[in-house]
């Protein structure tokens, strides 16, 4: 772990923290967003901590479990971290589905917050 670049360490621990909260009690995710944060959920845009949390807590499942397949992290020129996650999730008794999620993390007052969050299910539709 010590050999890894700092953005990888920060990104990876954010990702672990994020999905742990999401799967156990997603109402607590509020602490990672700020007023200027943006979420795009399956193409639907939400801006600000309030709107984001309203969306996340109103998702219609009681149990959800994420499993991370892979994650990548990069430093950006303005000292943020760009993270991309590929994984699978299972909501209640539904079949397992793949998903993608990307984050931009920013250091504000010595703590890392998520300014941008984009989520998509990795499933195709029929023509």
């Amino acid at each position: 772990m010590g050999d890894k670049p700092v953005w990888e360490q920060i990104g990876a621990s954010f990702v672990q923290h994020y999905y742990q909260l999401f799967d156990s009690d997603r109402s607590q995710l509020g602490c990672i967003y700020i007023g200027a944060s943006c979420l795009t959920w399956e193409g639907q845009p939400f801006q600000g901590k309030g709107a984001i949390m309203e969306k996340l807590t109103s998702l219609p499942f009681t149990k959800i479990a994420h499993s991370i397949t892979a994650q990548d992290h990069q430093p950006t020129p303005d000292s943020c971290i760009l993270s991309m996650v590929v994984g699978q999730l299972k909501a209640d008794d539904d079949p397992i589905m793949g998903f993608h999620q990307s984050f931009i993390l920013k250091n504000i007052n010595d703590s890392w917050v998520c300014t941008n969050d984009m989520f998509r299910l990795a499933i195709h539709n029929f023509g």
Binding site: G43, D94, M97, I123, N125, F126
Partner: peptide, 16 residues
């Protein structure tokens, strides 16, 4: 459905 209605609205191809 595969359960995607929990996350998104249905795609038109479902109805097609």
């Amino acid at each position: 459905t595969a359960g995607q209605e929990r996350f998104q609205s249905m795609h038109p191809s479902y109805y097609h």
